[in-house]
């Protein structure tokens, strides 16, 4: 009975403290005449965004729409990043177990080098490489007809639309910006090293007897991998893989350092223009929490299915 009393008191104290913090903040904001609430979302944003990922957006649109564009950009890089990192990670993980010493050595060097340097530094490196190494748009490289490489990124033809040099830059066709390319390359190459190690560990966790049994049945190397090793290994691989996906999504917020307009970058600008830091930061946290919990639920579901299959 006494224990319950203590717990109730502890909860009451925690709630009381939280209430005090919130009330105090609201009081202080009001006392200093600082606007609060989410009313700013409906106001005109007044700033431009470099990449809109297909959404129509202009400076006359609202903050809400600007944030939606930022969220779209975050999704774009996160989804492509997860796909890319998974494919590369599996290939490199298998490469580290290869019988060919050259493949083994090369993949080991790649993993150790990229896994042990900070991601932010790598992003600066890729961004500098793209902007410094490629020529200006007027002297763009054209490896294939209609494809142009310059320090403004890659322009490529789309059905019915061909990139043309017009004034300062190309227009028409499809376009990948240097910021997007640098961020995607950085996230994929960095996260793939961790995934490779997870894949390698997963495969090594399969008991040797299974392999010997498969060989005794006369199975070739490829079918052994597909039908014997991977089904076992995946059970070990999927749970830590989920955390790498979550890391990738959260790491995509480093975009702000190299000028890719992701959600954090747009929200930061909104915070500065409106001065409503508390609301802005709350939005950022809510968005990442939602993405992470959704992704986590999805991966748990995958894992449960994998286990159910037996």
């Amino acid at each position: 009975m006494k224990k319950i009393g203590f717990q109730a008191a502890a909860i009451a104290l925690a709630l009381g403290f939280a209430w005090y913090l919130v009330a105090n903040t609201v009081d202080n904001l009001a006392a200093r005449n600082i606007a609060s609430g989410f009313g700013f979302l409906g106001r005109e944003a007044g700033f431009e965004i470099g990449e809109t990922g297909g959404l129509a957006y202009g400076a006359a649109d609202t903050y809400l729409r600007a944030l939606a564009v930022g969220l779209g950009n975050t999704f774009r890089v996160a989804v492509l990043g997860i796909v890319g990192a998974t494919v590369l990670g599996f290939l490199v993980g298998l490469g580290r177990l290869s019988e060919n010493p050259l493949v083994r050595g090369a993949t080991a060097a790649y993993v150790e080098f990229l896994r042990n340097t900070p991601l932010l530094v790598q992003l600066f490196f890729w961004y500098a490489l793209i902007t410094e190494a490629f020529p200006s748009p007027r002297e763009a490289l054209s490896p294939l007809p209609g494809v142009f490489l310059s320090n403004r990124g890659i322009f490529f033809p789309l059905p019915g639309s061909w990139p043309v040099l017009e004034g300062f830059n190309f227009s028409g066709g499809g376009h990948l910006s240097p910021e997007f390319a640098a961020l995607l390359a950085g996230l994929v190459l960095y996260t793939a090293t961790y995934i490779a190690e997870i894949v390698r560990a997963g495969i090594l966790s399969v008991p040797k007897g299974q392999l010997e049994a498969a060989r005794a049945l006369g199975l070739e190397r490829r079918p052994t991998l597909r039908h014997v090793v991977l089904p076992h290994a995946l059970r070990v691989i999927v749970p830590p893989l989920s955390s790498q996906y979550l890391n990738l999504v959260k790491n995509s917020s480093l975009a702000v350092a190299i000028g890719y307009p992701d959600f954090v970058s747009v929200a930061n600008t909104a915070i500065n223009q409106t001065g409503q830091a508390i609301e802005g930061v709350a939005l950022i946290m809510a968005v990442y929490l939602t993405i992470s919990l959704a992704l986590s639920a999805l991966m748990n579901w995958c894992n449960a299915r994998l286990l159910a299959r037996g």
Binding site: E48, G50, N169, I258, G259, S265
Partner: peptide, 11 residues
């Protein structure tokens, strides 16, 4: 125009 928005003056 196309903005390239980066926080740090150096960058």
């Amino acid at each position: 125009f196309k903005p390239v928005v980066i926080d740090k003056l150096e960058e």
